[in-house]
Design a protein around this nucleic acid. Structure first.
Length: 293
DNA sequence: CATGGGTCCTGAGTGC
DNA sequence: TGCACTCAGGACCCAT
């Protein structure tokens, strides 16, 4: 589950490992990974002779600068890049290999096969999800006021809104739960009901959590490693994610796990009080009357 | 338009 | 021990 901190660490490792390498040829073993062009043979042929000038990140996407192309790669759940020697043993679930002229290879592995690659030329449209991305969390233009404007018209639970990449880019299930804990906001709270000061606190917490996670090398929950094969260390700093049944570090109440927005959701029922249930959708006239008293 | 549920996929975990 | 079953989730598709 690479989210922004993990993808950023992959980016940094690849920036060190593959910049200025020239592609001799590419081999795609699982065509479904390549979304564009439709034909993975064209993907292979186009990249022949291209040199990687840089590796950028936007949200959870890696962007390889391969003039005249951009290779836009999403790791989804378990995508992994590793630089290896051509003679190294092949790991299972290796789906795409970029062979470089110096005999090394950038190998893409993905057990669940959810990851995607889009190769776009200068006049090609960007992948729709990429084009629609909201602001980067660390963008200075994202002020508490602009963040409030993005959120206050949404009737969905705040957790669903934060997971929406069109609202803010790069957050996933882990860091949404951690940020909401930091801001002491219940994940099921209706986004539009949040006060301005809560939204401001939430932005501060999002940035703080992401910054610490990047510094720790990301969270290795299942299989995450960077381009060197190194695991991250932030999983031991998580305060709610994966800690159901364990005491809250702030107040000692046991952390609970529920479902919000279709996702496993961790929170402290004491630090993050649940929204009032009294006014939620009366079933019939009688119950409405009793609510109104 | 916004929202929410189903879908893709495989390995780990659970229960009998 | 073995097997069937459930769960995990990011983005996309689709119905409401």
């Amino acid at each position: 589950m690479p989210e922004l901190p993990e993808v950023e660490n992959v980016r940094r490792s690849l920036q060190e490992l593959v910049v200025n390498k020239t592609i001799e040829h590419v081999k795609v073993y699982l065509p479904r990974i390549v979304r564009t062009p439709d034909d993975s043979l064209r993907f292979q042929n186009s990249l022949e002779g291209c040199t990687i000038l840089g590796v950028d990140r936007r949200g959870k996407y890696l962007v390889f600068d391969l003039p005249p192309y951009k290779l836009i790669s999403h790791l989804r759940m378990e995508g992994q890049y590793r630089l290896r020697e051509g003679t190294d043993e092949m790991a299972p679930h290796t789906h795409v290999i970029f062979h470089f002229t110096d005999g090394t290879e950038l190998r893409y592995r993905d057990v669940r096969q959810f990851g995607t690659m889009d190769l776009v030329g200068p006049s090609d449209p960007l992948p729709s999800g990429f084009a629609a991305l909201g602001p980067e969390p660390f963008d200075e233009a994202l002020t508490p006021e602009t963040f409030y404007r993005l959120i206050h018209k949404r009737s969905a639970p705040i957790k669903a809104v934060l997971l929406d990449q069109k609202c803010i880019a790069g957050l996933g299930n882990i860091y949404v739960d951690e940020s909401l804990f930091g801001a002491q906001i219940h994940p099921g709270r209706t986004a539009s009901q949040l006060k301005k000061h809560q939204v401001a606190t939430l932005l501060v917490e999002i940035r703080a959590v992401l910054e610490r996670a990047i510094l720790a090398g990301g969270s290795s929950i299942r299989t995450y490693t960077n381009g060197y094969g190194r695991h991250g260390g932030f999983q031991i700093q998580l305060k709610v994610y994966g800690r159901e049944g364990q005491p809250c570090f702030r107040c000692g109440t046991l952390i609970e796990k529920t479902r919000v927005a279709g996702r496993g959701t961790h929170f402290c029922p004491s630090c993050q009080p649940a929204p009032s249930r009294r006014r939620v959708r009366p079933r019939n006239f009688a119950s409405e009357r009793s609510t109104l008293k």
